[in-house]
Design a protein around this nucleic acid. Structure first.
Lengths: 340, 340
DNA sequence: CCCGTTTCGTGCACCGTTCTACGTAAATCA
DNA sequence: TGATTTACGTAGAACGGTGCACGAAACGGG
């Protein structure tokens, strides 16, 4: 009884278990990691003690030498409609593999995001998945030297140190423009967000590029028009109104995200601009709200669950030692609804 | 050069810093925690080395003896409209205090939530905030013995080991019913969610209680009607239709959350049931979508940021040693819009 | 000038794991 | 039967910090 656990705290450690089971600390450790060289008899004894005492290994201590079996997931925000799908996809894979997830919420601020990554490294996560982060490629390359990284929603096809999983945003834009063209619209504008630094790797510029290319390819280069919206603040609504009330309001608008398509739709409704009779609309992300009948917004679907699944799988192969970078692009689809 | 950091790994540890600054390991540790007994000269030297080498302490190692300066936040899900506000409130306080946050996503499954709490304990978080968790009171009491806990969105006013921060859901329900009554509606029903175990501590039953009480108080006990909706699955839409197409459809419905009010609104719109001429509606949480003009949903606002702020503050005082439980209730407000 | 106080800085024993030897007994082979 | 392998279990040194106990200056009062 005076053996093994001399600590006064109630906390049950690997030593408590070892003492209770009458084996060495190393033996318990082996059982926990189901490592090689442990007999069934021993395993049973240890497992019984673990169960009895309710032992749980400390991730911190564990991380000092071995793995933590924990992955970090960095999300842009918490209110973005395309995150739940991706998260679910990630979780489905990691859960099956017995890994835990810790989430960081970046709030779309680069500084916060960097801090969160550092925090995840400090916590010895075995790897991290960055979702729609704004962090520059070189910064990522720097972090990638310290732990496996997979990036979702940020195009960096030349990156060497980390993987990228994306939907083909340029193709998605083409789908949207093409859908407009098929219905006879020609005066098609693009609505994007202006606050984010203008990194071509971001999804919004990618979609803009796809928009411009497609317009040019069909001989409508002179009709190209791009509107910018700030992420927050009062000017947002005012600018939306400007667009809607302008005498040369476009006939159709492709929005970089439902996040901006929905407020646009709302203002249009408020001002009596009919959708799609006066203005046709396509969004991106196919968020749950888009399918509500009073919204009925056509949108591009990225298949978030699949993106998340691929990201998690890539991360695992990287953790297992893969060194060469992998860059996956999947095809988005258009979900037609009443807004065009 | 052969001093201090003999490890081959590039990782810079507290020893690396100590060697570089020409001081003891303990001195560096003191500077990091700005503990007592360190001169300005020493501090400056150490700080310079830390800056130069880019040293970051390992949270895991740190947690083995001292604090981790990290808080865990457990969220029900990622798609719930009332979470962003709360999270933001929490963050505003913790950031100022130099604490980091790790988020766990519970997906509204009790088992997952328990696992996440255990994981946070394993990671030696200094304390945790549970948002709208479904975990039973006694389980919480058990965990509260291991680390400071504050619960938001779960009523447990008798709890001894942890704090609760809530909006007064019964009062919120009263606001809603009263608003209906003021406009002459008398045939008022309540829509709740059925999947969650029927714990009276949950917000939905609290609101139901408030609804029933108010109806009874004004002599409308015989008009009380409660509809239940499953959280997921196809039956949801079918059940919503049943409600809307039933010959004795209520004249007004108070929905436990915008989460269900929105789909209801959508189906109503699809079926040609006019809002509010045929059916008046009030939701809960005042989510961003509620204010869209094509939605225009009256909703109860809980002031998420304030809830989050109070929760974080309570957690800090508890971490600082407070033992006696604190149970705060704030008053929600009704945001009137076109749906009634 | 001596002796109690502070003020600083250091050495060292932890914290709870993993992991690399290494020892021993059983099993296999010649 | 003796020599080798194989299977199992153990000691003990990391890992990267914290915090206590202690010694050495510096201070200051009688």
């Amino acid at each position: 009884m005076a053996d093994g656990n001399e600590g006064l705290t109630g906390r049950v450690t690997i030593r408590t278990v070892a003492a209770d089971a009458g084996v060495s600390v190393a033996a318990v450790s082996k059982v926990m990691r189901n490592a090689y060289g442990v007999s069934d008899a021993l395993r049973l004894k240890v497992l019984a003690s673990i169960e009895k005492l309710g032992y749980r290994p400390s991730v911190g201590a564990r991380g000092m030498r071995g793995r933590t079996f924990t992955l970090g997931v960095l999300l842009v925000g918490i209110d973005n409609p395309f995150l739940p799908g991706i998260y679910q996809g990630i979780e489905s894979v990691t859960e099956a593999a017995g890994y835990k997830i810790m989430v960081g919420v970046g709030a779309a601020r680069t500084r916060t995001e960097v801090q969160l990554i550092e925090q995840m490294i400090d916590n010895r996560m075995d790897g991290i998945i960055l979702v729609a982060s704004q962090i520059a490629g070189e910064t990522l390359e720097h972090f990638a030297g310290q732990l496996p990284i997979v990036v979702v929603g940020h195009h960096e096809p030349k990156a060497l140190g980390y993987d990228t999983i994306n939907n083909d945003d340029q193709f998605g834009a083409r789908l949207a423009v093409q859908a407009f063209l098929d219905r006879g619209y020609r005066d098609i504008a693009y609505l994007t967000q202006s606050d984010r630094e203008d990194d071509f790797a971001d999804v919004a510029p990618q979609r803009e590029h796809g928009y411009r290319n497609t317009m040019t390819a069909v001989g409508l280069a002179d009709r190209i028009r791009v509107f910018c919206l700030p992420t927050y603040g009062q000017p947002r609504v005012a600018m939306i109104r400007d667009i809607l009330l302008s005498p040369d309001r476009p006939r159709a608008i492709f929005c970089w995200s439902d996040l901006d398509a929905l407020p646009l739709l709302s203002e249009a409704h408020r001002l009596g601009v009919r959708i799609p009779e006066d203005l046709a609309l396509i969004g991106y992300d196919n968020s749950p709200m888009a399918q509500m009948s009073m919204v009925d917004l056509t949108s591009i679907d990225q298949d978030g669950p699949r993106l998340g699944k691929l990201a998690a799988e890539a991360l695992f192969t990287r953790i297992s030692g893969r060194q060469v970078a992998e860059h996956i692009l999947i095809e988005p689809t258009l979900i037609p609804r009443g807004s065009l």
